[in-house]
C-alpha cells in the first residue's frame, strides 16, 4: 500500500508513536488500577486519569503555540514547560 500521500516524516511519526504509547500506557494503568482514579482537584470538579491526560496534551499544544507566537522557535523550552505542566496536572488537577 502506497502511503506517500500521507507525507510522513520522522518527527511526525515519532509524535504519533508517542501519543499511541501514552494511550497504551493509560490502558495498562487502567487494567492494573481500574476506576480511572477519580478525584476533585484544584479545578473543583472530578477528574479521572483520562481527563488529566487530555488536559495535559491539550495544554501542551497551546504552550507550544504560545511559545512559537510570543517567544521564538526553540521549542525544547516549550517542551520542558509542557512536561512540568503535565506533572502539575497529574498531581493537582
Amino acid at each position: 500500500m502506497n502511503l506517500s500521500w500521507m507525507a510522513w516524516t520522522k518527527p511526525t511519526a515519532l509524535f504519533f508513536l508517542t501519543i499511541i504509547a501514552l494511550l497504551i500506557f493509560m490502558a495498562l494503568w487502567e487494567a492494573v488500577k481500574p476506576g480511572g482514579g477519580p478525584r476533585v482537584g484544584i479545578l473543583r470538579f472530578e477528574t479521572t486519569r483520562g481527563d488529566r491526560l487530555f488536559l495535559s496534551l491539550l495544554g501542551s499544544a497551546f504552550i507550544h503555540l504560545a511559545w512559537l507566537g510570543l517567544i521564538g522557535s526553540n521549542l525544547w523550552w516549550a517542551f520542558g514547560v509542557s512536561l512540568f505542566y503535565a506533572v502539575f496536572v497529574f498531581n493537582f488537577v
Binding site: W5, M6, A7, T9, T12
Partner: peptide, 15 residues
C-alpha cells in the same frame, strides 16, 4: 495525521 504531516512541510504537488 495527514494534516499534521502537511503542517510541517511544503509541497508543489506530485507528492
Amino acid at each position: 495525521m495527514t494534516v499534521v504531516n502537511y503542517s510541517v512541510q511544503d509541497t508543489f504537488g506530485n507528492n
